[in-house]
Amino acid sequence: MSNDALRLRPPNHRVDRRAVGWWTTQALSVTVVLTVIPVVPALIWEPVRFWFLVAAGVLGGIGLLITAVMPRWRYRVHRWEITDTAVYTSSGWLWQEWRVAPMSRIQTVDTARGPLQRAFGLASVTVTTASAAGPIEISGLDHELATEVADQLTDSTEAVPGDAT
């Protein structure tokens, strides 16, 4: 518990403000689906109606709570930064994750836009290294900024020789 020692500083840039809306929509749609599943049998099957409605209520309640809390929390945590030498991101809400990858070890850079992200004008940048630990993802960027970031990353990784392993 040596809290007086080293600490990670948050990366410089926040993600786009619209990401809050995106996360809210996402959480809300999952909540709605999960709530509807027990409601259907409750409507057609009389004897167990009460218990299914209770289940629906509990699921809906938890879902709404998450929908209310999670997007804002995420917005406070999700950050990213690209320096000349490395990519640095933080993400998560209850469980949080910080990732650092040096420019010289980056293998591929992709941008992706799901239909929901597109509706909010957002995009994600995925940075892959040779590690099995999974790619680094910066989600919820403004889509033009995402393209710019990806281009910049591609340029700087191409400048570094080696096979990135």
């Binding site: 040596s2 007086d4 020692a5 030498t85 490395a86 640095y88």
Partner: peptide, 30 residues
């Protein structure tokens, strides 16, 4: 320990993590 682990990581690969670390009151790392 967060400080302990970061100091270890920073020392293991010097140039990588250093730009993203901060030392609140310049304290010695554990």
């Amino acid at each position: 320990g967060l400080g302990q682990g970061l100091a270890w990581a920073d020392e293991a690969v010097p140039e990588l993590l250093a730009p993203f670390l901060e030392r609140p009151e310049g304290a010695e790392a554990t």
